[in-house]
């Protein structure tokens, strides 16, 4: 079970959090102008890579805040956490 460093609360057990999938997928501002393919790209397509991935997490049983995480999915190592709207701290 991970130990997650919530940017608002500090280190907490994984059981307090929920995962929200890939980060930095911005909801299109003008969905009506998108083709079916473009909309499907936003709606369905996720990378799910083996390796370093940027993810959304929610401190659901804590401060209820969403934040982002840099996690290596191959070994579950969490390299960094950062707030919504911030740029990922590593490339």
């Amino acid at each position: 079970m991970f130990l997650i460093n919530c940017p608002y609360c500090g280190e907490r057990d994984q059981s307090e959090f929920t995962a929200g999938g890939e980060a930095h997928i911005v909801r299109p501002k003008q969905p009506t102008e998108l083709s079916d393919d473009q909309w499907a790209e936003f709606l369905f397509m996720r990378k799910n890579i083996k390796g370093v991935q940027l993810e959304r997490w929610n401190h659901a049983h804590g401060c209820r805040k969403w934040f982002n995480m840099v996690r290596d999915t191959s070994n579950d190592k969490i390299h960094a956490v950062y707030k919504m709207g911030e740029k990922p701290p590593i490339k």
């Binding site: 929200g20 929610n58 659901a60 805040k65 969403w66």
Partner: peptide, 13 residues
Amino acid sequence: LSKLEDYLQTEWP
């Protein structure tokens, strides 16, 4: 509630 929070915090802050 969590879905609405999600949109508020991430898409429409």
